[in-house]
Simulated assay, not measured.
Amino acid sequence: MGYRRYWHAPGPRTVFMESLLVSTLVVAIAEIGDKTQLLAIILATRFKKPIPIIMGILVATLANHALAATAGYWVADFLSGAWFRWAIAVSFIAMAAWALIPDKADDEEGDAAGRYGVFLTTTIAFFLVEMGDKTQIATVALGAKFQSIALVAAGTTLGMMLANVPAVYLGEAATKVVPLKYVRIGAAVIFLALGVWGIAEASGLLK
């Protein structure tokens, strides 16, 4: 019973779809212009081997976001209550402001590549760079909100891949299709909407 609790949708089909789709959308938009996407461009430009880079991103993101969703799940499980719902809502609003701040890839990540092979270099670099990143913190908040480790981790990982696979194949051109300024504004609007939604729930307006 405990296993089912962790790895299956906590409610009906609508909750299943909401958990997966919201997680995917939030991270896919927030990831555009993020430092991990810029890292993907650096690695793609340097190694010109898209498949091992993409596999490295996938493995690193699955590991990182599974841990983040688990942390969110347990925090919500032990700290349930109206005040905690308010804290989650406020965290989304804070991320809305954070999303407006441009990220820059650290040149050290790109320079360190090549010692351990493309796949392993990408996996290690992405896992470390994602620590404390806005998309990881969003995954923690989503895990707390939706109480589903598998769906949130799957959704946020899918969002990361939707943003980073084109970046790997198209390089810098992928981030010039839409100006990053407007992408960051879009991400901020989504985070803000989730925060307002959470406040409405905590206030009892959506009963």
Results as ranks from 00 to 15, higher is better:
46 R>V: 13
46 R>S: 11
47 F>S: 13
48 K>I: 12
48 K>C: 11
48 K>A: 14
48 K>H: 15
50 P>R: 12
50 P>S: 14
51 I>Y: 15
51 I>F: 13
51 I>A: 14
52 P>R: 05
52 P>E: 05
52 P>S: 08
52 P>K: 10
52 P>L: 11
53 I>Y: 03
53 I>P: 03
53 I>T: 04
53 I>G: 02
53 I>D: 03
55 M>D: 10
56 G>P: 13
57 I>F: 08
57 I>G: 05
58 L>N: 06
59 V>R: 02
59 V>C: 03
59 V>Y: 02
60 A>L: 00
60 A>P: 03
60 A>H: 01
60 A>I: 00
61 T>I: 05
61 T>D: 00
62 L>D: 02
63 A>Y: 01
63 A>Q: 01
64 N>R: 00
64 N>G: 01
65 H>P: 01
65 H>Q: 01
65 H>F: 00
65 H>W: 01
66 A>Y: 09
66 A>V: 12
66 A>W: 08
66 A>C: 10
66 A>L: 15
67 L>R: 00
67 L>P: 02
67 L>M: 10
67 L>I: 13
68 A>K: 03
68 A>Y: 00
68 A>Q: 02
68 A>E: 05
68 A>N: 05
68 A>M: 10
69 A>W: 00
69 A>N: 00
69 A>I: 00
70 T>N: 06
71 A>P: 00
71 A>T: 10
71 A>S: 04
72 G>C: 09
74 W>R: 08
75 V>D: 04
75 V>Q: 11
76 A>K: 09
76 A>W: 05
76 A>I: 07
76 A>F: 04
77 D>Y: 10
77 D>A: 14
77 D>F: 12
78 F>P: 06
78 F>R: 06
78 F>I: 09
78 F>D: 10
78 F>Y: 08
78 F>L: 13
79 L>Q: 11
79 L>I: 11
79 L>G: 15
79 L>H: 10
80 S>E: 09
80 S>P: 01
80 S>A: 15
81 G>P: 06
81 G>A: 07
82 A>K: 07
82 A>S: 14
83 W>Y: 11
84 F>W: 08
84 F>Q: 12
84 F>E: 06
